[in-house]
Amino acid sequence: MEALVLQNVSKALENQQILHNISFKVELGEIVALLGPSGCGKSTTLAVIAGLLDADQGEIFWKGQSLRGIPPHQRNFGLMFQDLALFPHLNVFENIAFGLRMRKLSSAQIQQRVQEMLVLVNLQGFERRDVANLSGGEMQRVALARALAPQPQLLMLDEPLASLDRTLRDRLALELRHILRQMNQTAIYVTHDQEEAFTVADRIILMKEGKIEQTGTPHEIYQKPVSPFVAQFLGMKNLVEAEILYENGQSWLSLPWGKISHPSQKAGKGLALIRPTGAVVDGKEGLQLKGKLVQKVFRGDHCLLEVQCGAELLSFSIPCSMSIPPENETLTLTIRPESILFFAR
């Protein structure tokens, strides 16, 4: 069932167009990640949904009803901020209880609900703690508990893990997904980190400069990025000039190092993406690529290779083996045809 619908939402701030005709849907119980580089309009989208900003144009619906004119406190949406915005004058208990007090719950109900939340985020016994004296991870959990306590119809999380270090972030992202799933919570998760988005979300909406670039499950987006931008944003850097040619009734992809068969409807120039995992050393099937091994970095289960092929510097991640030569020596790689994507211009 469709819960949230955005229809052609536009927003300008200080004479600068931040959102251009954004439209998307969120299903009930779905976790959607808004992914994109900073400044792409993710946080503004959240602020508009929360009602903290008014959209200049477009409509937002919740379960078929327009949200126009409904102030933030009547929407029953939760928003967890990047810097958490924990109230410094209230302790852990009172922070979590804040939304419940606004809903005029009895003190017994509040007591009970706060306890449930503390158990959920694994912070039992922290009730009387001052929020200023918590660790980064603990603050994160308090903020989550505070946002979840009033049982929001929709929970929005704005870069909730951005201020934490990598290890803690990976762990908390998993934990977050677990908790949101457990509550069957409809949620929008804003982040600029694709790994975090892949971990937490059912579906990803990738944004660029105030527009939606691609929508899909993590797997779909990773397998079929629709543009060089998406590919690059997901960390795939091997982009080279290429062209689709028709010869002998067959379509070919012409690369700086030769051509391979490539099914395509239309001839023309564009960019080719070579997946970093798409190469093997001395393979048989596919495009043969010869270059100088500039750098070899050992990464445990795989090796990171930087290869100078003509004018292009390409990077590959392949299983470490004896067949990889030392640095500064020549290396021949074989690229599987299915690891090459073409983006027409």
Partner: peptide
């Protein structure tokens, strides 16, 4: 804003 999202007028 956080207070507003938690239901405060």
């Amino acid at each position: 804003q956080a207070a507003r999202c938690l239901g405060a007028t």
